[in-house]
Amino acid sequence: MVQAGGTQLALQVHESTGDARASVVLGCAIGVPQRYYQDFAAWLARQGFRVTTFDYRGHGASLQGPARRVRANLLDWARDYEAVVAQARAQLPGRPLFLLGHSLGAQLPGLFQRPGQVDGLLAVAAGSGYWREIAPQARRRAHLLWYGVLPASTLACGYFPGRRLGVIGDLPAGVAWQWRRWCLSPRYSVGAEGEAVARSYAAVRYPIHALSFADDEMMTLRGTQSLLALYAGAPRQIERIDAQAVQGARIGHMGFFRSAFEASLWPRAAAVLQRWCADA
């Protein structure tokens, strides 16, 4: 457990089998609990990394009490993420600390108050989230979500009941409403929150490597480029991966972390982290 803003966050640590090369904190996608990532986290630990996963406040194993009573937004979730980073850094001093962010997990680091704690961000299936930059086949569903399903269900339930609806997962009301604002803004979080957030993203100096998948209907190449553009002061690189790299199998927005890709995709992530270790 770690404390953040008076809330206890549930986390899980996978220790390296030998001396850890570095610490890795895995930031979840929105609505996705940390348990989804455990196979990948355990594999990455076997490659020589100390890996920490966690659930944001009011979500997954960090939910305490009814979801409708949770008072949290995405800025709070960024503070949660940063608190986990601080603890992971303290528990493995003198070694680099990298973030592995899935979707939202690569967006929130731009809101950290102390970006100097981080030595690199590996962004997986991550983009700006602006709804007009998602794939055409997903835009109609997104329009219905933002203007119909999310407002109506969140007002009725006091939280977004995504699990019951089969859309994303359950979200605190404050997270759902703020995420909606971000996704309706052409500049995503920066457009919705203003100049202070723009400066926060621009203050990041650590390298960012994005793994972008050609069949990801939620985070297109354009969306990934838009997100990385917010990190204006950071060295940035996009690695584009298509179905040929995995013998025609579907990857999509969620697939990277499936154990079916242990031999084909997971080593790409380890290679980036190992290179950064060598540079550090």
Rank of each mutant, 00 (worst) to 15 (best):
G5P: 07
G6D: 01
L9E: 02
A10N: 03
A10P: 01
Q12M: 09
G18T: 08
D19Y: 05
D19P: 12
A20F: 00
V25D: 00
L26Q: 01
C28S: 12
C28E: 03
C28W: 02
I30Y: 06
G31N: 04
P33W: 04
F40Y: 11
W43L: 04
L44V: 06
Q47P: 04
G48R: 04
R50F: 03
V51G: 01
T52G: 01
Y56S: 13
Q64D: 15
A72C: 09
D76A: 05
D76I: 07
V84K: 02
R89A: 02
R89M: 00
A90W: 03
L92N: 02
L92T: 00
P96D: 05
F98A: 08
L100V: 15
S103Y: 02
A106W: 04
Q107A: 05
Q107F: 08
G110Y: 07
R114T: 07
G116K: 03
Q117A: 09
V118Q: 03
D119P: 01
A126L: 01
A126N: 01
I134P: 00
A138P: 02
G148I: 03
A152V: 15
L155E: 09
L155K: 10
L155F: 10
C157H: 14
G158H: 07
F160E: 04
R164D: 13
L165N: 07
G166E: 09
V167T: 14
I168P: 01
G169H: 08
D170A: 12
L171D: 01
P172S: 14
V175Q: 07
L184A: 05
P186V: 05
R187G: 13
S189A: 15
E195M: 11
E195S: 13
A196F: 10
A203Q: 12
V204S: 12
V204A: 15
S212V: 15
S212T: 14
F213H: 01
R222A: 15
Q225A: 13
Q225Y: 06
A232Q: 14
A232V: 11
R236M: 12
I238H: 09
E239W: 00
I241L: 12
D242K: 08
A243Q: 14
G248P: 08
G248I: 10
G248K: 05
G248S: 09
G248V: 12
A249H: 10
A249D: 12
I251T: 09
I251C: 12
G255M: 07
A260R: 15
E262S: 07
W266Y: 09
C277N: 02
A280G: 14
